[in-house]
Amino acid sequence: MTTSALYDRSAQDAAASVIANYSTSFSLATRLLGTRVRGHVRNVYALVRLADEIVDGEAERAGLPADAQRRLLDEFEDETFRAIDRGFSTNLIVHAFALAARECGIGEDLIRPFFASMRTDLTETSHDAASHDTYVYGSAEVVGLMCLQVFVNAGRPAPVSPDAELVEGARRLGAAFQDVNFLRDLADDRGRLGRDYLGIGDGATRAEVLARIDHDLDVAALAIPRLPSDCRRAVTTAHGLFAELARRLHDDDGAQRVSVPTPVKATIAVKAMAGFPPRRTDA
């Protein structure tokens, strides 16, 4: 193995470690991806996770004020673009993301909105309908679009653009994931972070948010069967996990954070492996 290949593999191993430690559900879904795409999807999510830690997690717990967090985020974004340009970063997670971006055509049009939404977390504590949609596009929909770029382009000699139905499905799935997380983390976001992403009690209602989630999941379900075969089972599993969370949120009284028990997760994954289509609420 060449030194370059060893460094690339080490970077991708670091990205896989981040995901394995931070999200059991996502780690389960990515294990169902084909080897063609699995590493690059982990690379994307590791970068997203680290950016989120700057604005929501470890940087704050380390006592860094908002202006210091912003500088760190700006530096992280700048290093991401430098790594894509030159094909190397001393930050292993950034290096791994650059591998995915360069091969799969993940460009500035997707990366800039993501960092813009992360930056919003340092200055905005509440959202109306318009700012919610802008935030969710940058924080979640573009992440779905980055993964779609990987699904369509990993292993190709040159990247191509996904078709409109796949793009819409990726956006809707990302938005549903984000709104589910907002709803299940509502108490913590308000209490610990002082943030209100959904505007519940100030215009929006819980029922309206859940109806939007169900609609987004249904639109995504229509597109998933059109994904490359080595991606469908994993995306169907992820869709199923969040559809189950949404179902439980419909019955939730808000007393505790809802979750999907491990046996239920396993059943969802087994059904996806067996070729069952994504569950739809409008079927």
Rank of each mutant, 00 (worst) to 15 (best):
D188W: 03
L245R: 05
M118L: 07
A272G: 10
R31D: 09
D74Y: 12
R257D: 07
A29F: 06
E58L: 11
P65W: 09
L166I: 09
R71G: 08
C104L: 08
D214T: 03
Q12W: 12
A29T: 05
A266K: 12
Y7E: 14
T205M: 09
S4A: 15
G107V: 04
F114L: 05
I111Y: 09
A59C: 11
V142W: 00
A98E: 05
D133I: 03
A130Y: 12
D52L: 00
A29N: 04
S229F: 12
Y22T: 03
M146D: 02
K271N: 15
G87N: 00
N43I: 15
T24K: 01
N21C: 06
A221I: 12
E60N: 09
G169L: 00
R70I: 07
Y135W: 03
A154Q: 04
L122Y: 01
I213L: 08
D282C: 15
R184I: 02
Q69S: 11
F115Q: 00
S23A: 10
T35K: 12
V41I: 14
R9D: 15
R42E: 15
L227G: 13
E124R: 07
R233K: 10
S23N: 11
R49T: 04
I106Q: 01
P225G: 13
S126K: 02
A187G: 13
L245P: 01
L210T: 12
I213Q: 03
T90D: 09
E208H: 14
N91F: 09
I54V: 04
A66D: 11
A66C: 13
V264Q: 06
L92C: 11
A14W: 01
T120S: 14
G275Q: 13
V48S: 05
N21E: 07
I93W: 02
G191F: 13
R102V: 08
R206C: 04
A220W: 00
S89V: 07
E165N: 13
T237N: 03
C104T: 08
D109Q: 12
A62K: 11
L99F: 07
A96T: 06
T120L: 14
A164D: 13
F81P: 01
G34R: 07
L33Y: 10
F114V: 02
A98F: 06
S4Y: 14
M118P: 03
H95W: 06
D109S: 12
D189K: 02
D67H: 13
D185T: 01
L72S: 05
A154L: 06
Q12I: 14
D251Y: 10
F151L: 09
D133W: 07
R171L: 10
A238L: 05
R233G: 05
R279N: 06
I213V: 15
G138I: 02
L186G: 01
P162N: 08
H250Y: 04
L72W: 05
V44S: 09
R49E: 03
V258W: 01
V209H: 07
H239G: 01
A246W: 00
D78N: 10
